[in-house]
Design a protein around this nucleic acid. Structure first.
Lengths: 247, 247
DNA sequence: GCAGCCGTTTGATCCACGTCAAGCGGGAGC
DNA sequence: GCTCCCGCTTGACGTGGATCAAACGGCTGC
């Protein structure tokens, strides 16, 4: 029923389907659009791409011509230095937009890699600009999305520049929890899609330190950690750890 | 002569003058606009604000309604945590845009403070959106500016997350040098407008460390440092320090 | 021209996190 | 169901940068 093509209206429905029937539309690009405007966005976003675990949507240096909205799955972006060191610059889940780094130079400046089998909607950027010149709400919302990316990065800079290890990991967990909540998942129980090393890279820590801090949080009864399965037992206390130099 | 209004064409010229006669137009928002389009941008940007040293353009939490282009002078932006720690998130010089953090939430999320007596052009954001719906080149360039801010932030994250102190300061100096060059100043000799503490905050280091690394660079004959007066003696070597873990 | 202050430099010591190393355990592949 | 590998945990030790402390020197204001 779900894979066999048919002449039924249902499958027509599925073909037309893009943003207007997407469960993530309240988190993604279509926020604030009227039904008519949504239809116009659907015309633009008709291509979807599946990305297998550890494959990339794009690599640094590749030509930029589209943004990607995460339809399902989980991604990381990372930049690398010549000498091999690399820095994870972000994690992305359903409804979030990837690729805005490429607009400025028309080439991507980081890699976008799937951390599990995933699916993205392809948003041709030139056409997005065309449409957002006509649809004020789309223009405005897109600007907001870019602005929030900047603010998010400032948060990471704050974290990297002036927090200690425990604060960083607590902030990271609280942030994940909030994003899962917004997507209708449990705020307190989730699977990490990334390794300790990737978390460490994002937080400016070594994987051993990440592991040790997880253990400490567990000993303190704030979270329960079993490999990638996380259960947050005391969110308020975790929030308290952030912004308090732990002494 | 400069403050008395008169009927002379010269002063009319000065009144009309904004982007179209600005020496920074090749670095700022007007990049890529035709003469006609420039005139329309001039209609929008007619207000200038002087900001004395240590005064702010805006503070975190204030309502957002405009972007600011640095006309002259030097600024920092910083975010602060409840407990008083703050993190400098950027330094801004002539032709650079400040305030994009506010678009997402309609409130500013950081403070923008002048490091010397400065002047900014006020760009009402709603009108900028209106105009960029009509002027494709403006729309596209604005998107590029935002994107570059994101890429710049990624660079800082890389620096904070995986570089050692010497690399961070070297990267910082090289970056400043390039930006001064683009503005027609010497690539190798300039005054720092910020304190060691502000540099440290930006780079995730303490002011003592910044000072020590400056001294080490000077001992190595790479730069000459006298308080805020910096002369870079060996730019290639400085660039080499970045991206090489110094061992 | 003098005093006071603030930003800076430099030294001595400390400690959070990195590094190195060993062992564990769960999941994938046979 | 067994084996291997990879990601994770944990311990012992090292170190880069933080912290604490003192002194210097160049502006600013009188």
């Amino acid at each position: 029923m779900s894979s066999a093509p048919s002449a039924q209206p249902l499958s027509l429905e599925r073909l037309r389907a893009a943003c207007s029937t997407c469960g993530l539309r309240e988190l993604c690009l279509p926020v604030g659009l009227s039904d008519g405007e949504l239809d116009r966005l659907d015309d633009l976003i008709h291509l979807r791409r599946t990305v297998k675990k550890s494959q990339s949507i794009y690599r640094s240096g590749e030509r930029f011509d589209a943004l990607y909205a995460v339809r399902s799955g989980f991604f990381k972006t990372s930049v690398l230095l010549e000498d091999g060191r690399d820095q994870v610059t972000g994690f992305y889940m359903g409804g979030e937009l990837i690729g805005m780094d490429g607009i400025g130079t028309e080439h991507h400046t980081c890699d976008a890699v799937a951390l599990e089998d995933s699916e993205v909607c392809v948003i041709p950027f030139a056409r997005l600009e065309d449409l957002s010149r006509e649809v004020h709400a789309l223009q405005h919302h897109f600007h907001k999305v870019m602005s929030r990316e900047i603010v998010r990065d400032h948060g990471v800079m704050m974290l990297l520049g002036s927090m200690r290890a425990e604060e960083r990991l607590a902030a990271f967990l609280v942030n994940l929890s909030q994003r899962f909540t917004a997507r209708g998942y449990s705020p307190s129980e989730f699977y990490l899609r990334m390794t300790r090393e990737e978390i460490g890279s994002y937080l400016g820590l070594k994987l051993e330190t990440v592991s040790r801090v997880f253990s400490r949080f567990q000993d303190d009864g704030m979270v329960s950690v079993q490999q990638k399965h996380i259960r947050i037992i005391d969110i308020p206390r975790l929030k308290q750890v952030v912004g308090h130099p732990s002494c």
